[in-house]
């Protein structure tokens, strides 16, 4: 049982990796796609065997509490700000995400995930960096749903939203939102895989979980991750990072 973030499911990456893992090991993976908050909570309750998440700051706390262990850096992708083509906040063409958040805070509307996900945590961190109280942003609302549903709501509402690249590319054909700001170093989205600690949660199947995590960082799997999405979207959705250090990616 793997608790993972919705972005890895919505982008289709796990639909590629899980069957591959099954062919190699005979182990079936039950994927529960939830926000990073819920994935962590599942780990903390011992309801999952392995987790794949992208909220580095809060991950450190769960390692410290002993709920998860053997964390491995797997891959990264990045977030981007998308918005209506009319771009009322005039963000398009700028490079600084903090300035962009300030501009959006003046015009709105902005649709947030509001589901405790890693994406929402990234959004909150950006508002913090911009020195803005998000509850005061005009037309800001929260869907409490996954990335795909939130993109659809933002599209219909002609609002800005923060999205991971993978889900945006998967939804690009269906929505009119366009990227208004990308490639700022603040917008990096780093995925770690963990084994739920069997010393703390007796029911956690640590052997199976370890096999899964080893599979994710194996060179062959990393090649698959690096190629994923090229054929369909013309660009890779994830950058494989096994063996790199957090510092190399600019994480503290």
């Amino acid at each position: 049982m793997l608790a993972t973030t919705t972005s890895t499911r919505d982008s289709g990456l796990l639909d590629t990796l899980v069957p591959l893992f099954r062919r190699q090991t005979g182990i079936d993976v039950k994927v529960i796609a939830v926000g990073t908050g819920a994935a962590r909570a599942m780990a903390a309750r011992g309801d999952a065997d392995a987790v794949l998440v992208h909220a580095w700051e809060s991950e450190k706390r769960y390692v410290a509490s002993g709920d998860v262990r053997d964390g491995r850096l797997v891959m990264h992708n990045d977030f981007l700000l998308v918005g209506p083509p009319a771009d009322p906040a005039r963000v398009r063409g700028t490079r600084d995400v903090v300035a962009a958040m300030r501009a959006i805070a003046r015009t709105g509307p902005f649709i947030s995930r509001g589901d405790g996900s890693g994406t929402e945590q990234m959004e909150r961190a950006l508002w913090r960096l911009a020195g803005i109280d998000p509850t005061r942003v005009p037309g800001r609302d929260a869907t409490g749903q996954g990335m795909g549903a939130t993109l659809l709501v933002a599209d219909q509402r002609r609002a800005y939203t923060l999205t991971d690249r993978a889900t945006y590319l998967a939804f690009r054909e269906r929505i009119r939102l366009v990227p208004v700001l990308e490639h700022d170093p603040h917008l990096l989205n780093v995925y770690h895989a963990y084994v739920v600690n069997p010393a703390k949660h007796r029911r956690a199947k640590a052997t199976l979980a370890r096999a899964w995590v080893s599979f994710l960082v194996a060179p062959a799997t990393q090649d698959v991750i690096g190629a994923f999405g090229r054929a369909r979207y013309g660009q890779a959705l994830f950058v494989p990072d096994a063996g790199k250090t957090e510092a190399q990616l600019g994480l503290k």
Partner: peptide
């Protein structure tokens, strides 16, 4: 399920379950 306008009890339950 918009927090300020369309969230009702059932959709709030789904959200809180999703949050863990």
């Amino acid at each position: 399920n918009l927090e300020r306008s369309t969230r009702v009890l059932t959709t709030a339950i789904v959200t809180e379950t999703g949050r863990g």
